[in-house]
Amino acid sequence: MQSLADTPLTIYGEQFTSRMLIGSALYPSPEVMQAAIATSGAEIVTVSLRRQQTKQAGDDFWSLIKEMGLRVLPNTAGCHSVKEAVTLAQMCREVFATDWIKLELIGDEYNLQPDPIALLEATEILLKDGFKVLPYCTDDLVLCQRLDALGCEVLMPWGAPIGTGKGLLNPYNLQTIRTRLPHQTLIVDAGLGLPSHACQALELGYDAVLLNSAVAGAGCPITMAKAFEASTVAGRLSYLAKAMPQKEVASPSTPTLGMPFWHAN
């Protein structure tokens, strides 16, 4: 049987087998978080920074993540200005000892939409400061082209607003970005709710998906993590296999040659 050659997910020169990046928030317990992340097969987990509390909860969380031995991707979630995002990115780099940053810069509180203008400014500053920026952006082709021109080697357009679980609201936009930026590593970030959404993103040719709420908020996060893993594998294989062209008219799949004629009339 012929099998199709694949290339690994590549993020700033580093290669990964899994095509799912997973968040570490919103799980019902630390144990479920750890089990769900492990079950997902994800090799990259997102984390963040907040004010140190007097109790030990934060220390416990970080110990659990560290013992999993995964690549961490810190984010700048909650930042509303370039200054805030740049400062938080620099703090993340020191704490997590990585130059990767998932750059989130919120422009609107209602749908947590990224601010495209501030995002470009912050991206340029951070790239010049030596960061490897993974910008969380809207599914706007020109914005993605500008981020690409700045030197980003990964772009992460949204599927839908964070935490909505609505799936890919605008597959046409996502497909257009894929078509126009064939060299880019593209990751659909946010808004996924079902494994079929992840599968659809991979079928469009996206290199990976990043999700959190869809797994953490499921009735059984561990089982859902497994389902998402399977869906990313299916979606990637489907993309590699190249789907049949859609047709407007029915076409029989069973051969008509040798058909008896008892219903000819």
Binding site: L26, Y27, R51, N75
Partner: peptide, 10 residues
Amino acid sequence: IELLSPIQGG
């Protein structure tokens, strides 16, 4: 002064 430490993130 802001003193920040790791927490969960999405």
